[in-house]
Design a protein around this nucleic acid. Structure first.
Lengths: 279, 279
DNA sequence: GAATATGATAGGCTTTACCTATGACAGCAT
DNA sequence: ATGCTGTCATAGGTAAAGCCTATCATATTC
């Protein structure tokens, strides 16, 4: 394995054409450099310089080696700085709940990027430990603070070839006529069911799915209709949104972070920035 | 300055998550590796692993360092091979005379490239020492062999707006009516002058220039007309070539190389290739 | 609770890297 | 000619670096 020390010696000799001068430059004695050069030549299996009594002259092999050596040595000398730059970056680990509006999430990330330059951002699964969670207000833990960011309205989604796709709006009680897909963890669906129950009506529940994207797949597959947050279906031409002629249903999304301990400085900076820009 | 040895230790530890196992992989004892890691951590000014009794766990800093370390170590390990590949390449230094046909020169270089892959080719000035010279047969030295490659016919060049540009051909004796630019080192011009002298005619010499490209500049500038080898004026729309109704004038171009010493193996290979392809 | 596995530490040995002093030799000035 | 100077190579000695074995402290496993 090549030794960076020998390469640095080589570079000095190559540039000075003089072992004595190169030794001065390397802060070592001339015999040390002579020995180092001999060692390098033995490792590479061939002479690199022609020695004479008035200095040394680079051979072809030295001309070949020089650019390679310079490159390697420079990269090695840059390594600590690169490492420090990385290691000293501010870190933020953000847990993101699934099925958020792509567009709004991108907007938030842009703001984060502006708030803290050279940020070492890590987006992790919703369950993983993190400095901060991007989620619904209803999912805030006891010992957390909720910092609101945006709201997503639920809209009724139907396949574009569905009967309902013709209608401009729909009243709650009309929903009972249609097959409906339920999303158990979702508040809007529970609200709707409650709303209809008041009028002694019930939804015709044909399927359930854990996540919004699975619900969307079911709708697209023609199983029925369902409520979905508006951000999710922006770019889906095979779905149509119908205005819902009832109480507003929406979810509130924001950052949850622990209240019982001092907030990480990176997160504090971010929250300050978000307060300013969202105000 | 970072030490590649320590980086290799680090990489092994990072990949094994276990100092003892990494030591085995590096063919050193466990204490050597422990010491090496401590040394690296001191140089970088921070811990890299969290020690425990069931191995070590990489900290963030180690995750940052790892790709940098791998890159550097890999490049270092590749260096000797890269160097050998360069150093063992066949070398050929070719002195090229100026003002040759660009197209034909490119063709020759293509052939050279095919003849010897991984060739370390150096094109040098016509005067510089070289293994081989690309020049005219008339410029061959006493102790050289000439290997012919191609011939370039001289054509009469006139500016496209010149009176002569209308003619399809011209006889030697008609030349005396026009201003003529001379190129002293050029055989064609001497031949022409001699030819006209036989008929008691003489050229009206208005300018001289040492090189073909300077002659071309003078022609373009409207000083007069002149003979130029056909390869030189391929891509010059402001010049017109006139057929010369006299004896053929051309120059023969080829490789000159010493005859008195054994031919360099690289050159021998090249000449063998050229003999086959030009035959 | 013994066996096993891991990393840290201590002490000793070997090699390496470096230094000073000197030698050999070429170029240059006196 | 004869030193003088500048060059690289060599010899010999020293300090430090690198490595090893043995051992310790502690956690995990059976």
């Amino acid at each position: 394995m090549v030794d960076l020390r020998l390469l640095r010696f080589f570079i000095a000799i190559y540039e000075e054409n003089n072992i004595t001068a190169a030794a001065t430059r390397c802060y070592v004695s001339q015999p040390s450099l002579s020995a180092g050069l001999k060692q390098l030549e033995e490792e590479l299996g061939g002479a690199l310089f022609e020695r004479s009594k008035k200095g040394v002259k680079a051979l072809d092999s030295a001309h070949y080696l020089y650019p390679l050596a310079v490159k390697l040595v420079e990269e090695a000398s840059k390594l600590p700085a690169l490492f420090m730059a990385k290691a000293s970056r501010q870190k933020l680990r953000l847990a993101v709940m699934p099925d958020l509006s792509q567009r709004r999430l991108a907007g938030l990330l842009t703001q984060i990027n502006q708030a803290i330059s050279h940020l070492d951002l890590e987006l992790v699964d919703y369950q993983s430990p993190a400095d901060c969670r991007l989620t619904l207000d209803s999912l805030r833990h006891e010992d957390e603070v909720f910092f609101p960011l945006w709201e997503e309205d639920y809209v009724l989604c139907v396949p574009s070839e569905h009967r309902l796709a013709q209608l401009s709006s729909i009243r709650p009680e009309e929903l009972s006529q249609y097959d409906f897909i339920e999303c158990p963890p979702c508040e809007a669906h529970q609200q709707t069911i409650g709303l209809l129950a008041c009028s002694n009506l019930s939804l015709n529940l044909v399927a359930k799915a854990e996540s919004k994207s699975l619900v969307m797949s079911l709708v697209l597959a023609g199983f029925g209709v369902s409520f979905l947050p508006d951000g999710l279906i922006e770019d889906e031409p095979r779905l149509k949104q119908i205005k819902f002629d009832g109480p507003r249903m929406f979810r509130r999304i924001g950052l949850c972070y622990p209240s019982h301990q001092t907030v990480a400085p990176t997160l504090a900076t971010l929250l300050r920035h978000l307060s300013k820009t969202t105000a």
